[in-house]
Design a protein around this nucleic acid. Structure first.
Lengths: 226, 226
DNA sequence: CGGCAACAATGATCTATGCCATGTAGCAGG
DNA sequence: CCTGCTACATGGCATAGATCATTGTTGCCG
């Protein structure tokens, strides 16, 4: 992969889009590219954090396993999005695993190189803070939901959240959605079947389309149950 | 409150402990002090974020309400700990409310003043990133727990987490613990009564002491149920 | 000292959702 | 075209934990 290609990829990210030409070149010089097949892990929870990653092509899921091995999906990331930052800023093991969902290309930057690069880029550092703050905000909303809302509403909220990031067509299986909502595939299927009947979503194998977001929003508020 | 007193308070915080004498004076000059009685709110979810806060004396709880009004406690903060950062870094409304648990004194710094102050303090900015990363890490662990672990284990983990921050004596009511675990007071009481019988904790009104942390750890792993 | 309010404890139901089992349909590869 | 794999679907049962109700306990304030 050429330098120009790497620069183009870095530019996709909000965090780096403010860099000058020159800075881009410098940063691109620090990058390595890794290609992975679906199912392969970029890193595993507990590993030493040597690299910061950004998605170039494809999608990753970041997940944690429970004590009984069930998986919980913290987030999906697509092109231009960064992951693994928590670990490299704290210099402690990755708190979760990252797995390729599809064919995946990631840009990797060595921890120390990145720290050095950030030294004199206050603007970029502030953008990183912004990203971290956003994730913390989202995490707090989800914590509250998991602790206090019922599955129906949590499902609705996950669908809305995904739609706001990816548009109305969501390329996920019921299993994956269940792992984001924190429930079982069966329950997810049952609820989504109802949503389908009610004309709120449409779906086929591995694909869900939000048809009536307004009604989904009502459900997510829990105003009236289905 | 004198400048020297304010400097002493700021110095309690990990984030600011690296500042020079001179920087401390500058920052202290930007601070206001607010005193609140137990139960009063420092800020409410949804308000515009004009201030960054740090606890000077007492404790705050940061919480969110569910759609049915149940409250979920995101975290408690004590002297030297900062709160409200997510909002001021994003310049969006506070994502949660902050309520005084006891008599409370907080240091408040105006958003714009703080941003200006940070401009040329890369070291301090990195410490803020460190704090944010830590909170995000904790949030991810809790998300997984809420989604995939049973109440018993979640309770054990909350108690361990609190003990690691505050020592073995925890000044919380069952209600407050329930609101952190994401369950009801009744369930919390039942489980904690068992823990008491088993000699793992001791407790009196509004006070819980961890006696046998090792066994609590076993429970939190879910190896063998009670 | 007495009475009120918050906390703690416990029993009796109820129910949302987990878990197991079984069946079907679509897609992929030999 | 068959075979097999994975996603989707649905029924029945089990149960963790919520909910409702009552009672006891502690500390506080007038």
């Amino acid at each position: 992969m050429t330098l120009d290609e790497r620069i183009a990829l870095l530019g996709q990210s909000i965090t780096f889009s403010s860099l000058t030409e020159e800075e881009m070149v410098e940063l691109a010089g620090l990058c390595r590219i890794r290609s992975l097949n679906a199912g392969e892990y970029v890193f595993m929870e507990g590993e030493e954090p040597d690299w910061l990653y950004m998605v170039a092509e494809g999608r990753v899921k970041v997940l944690k396993h429970s004590s009984q091995g069930k998986e919980f999906i913290i987030s999906f990331f697509g092109p231009g999005e960064m992951f693994g930052e928590v670990a490299i800023f704290q210099n402690r093991p990755y708190p979760a695993s990252a797995q390729a969902v599809s064919e995946l290309k990631v840009i990797a930057i060595k921890r120390d190189d990145f720290h050095t690069f950030l030294r004199n880029r206050p603007e970029t550092v502030f953008r990183m803070i912004h990203v971290l703050s956003g994730r913390l905000r989202d995490a707090q909303v989800r914590l509250r939901d998991l602790a206090a809302e019922r599955v129906e509403q949590r499902l609705a909220r996950v669908l809305i959240m995904l739609a706001s990031r990816l548009g109305p067509v969501l390329p996920f299986t019921r299993q994956e959605i269940a792992d984001m909502v924190g429930t079982t595939p069966e329950t997810t299927i049952r609820l989504m079947s109802k949503l389908k009947e009610a004309g709120i979503i449409a779906s086929s194998r591995g694909r869900t389309e939000i048809v009536d977001e307004a009604r989904l929003r009502e459900l997510s508020e829990g105003l009236q149950p289905m």
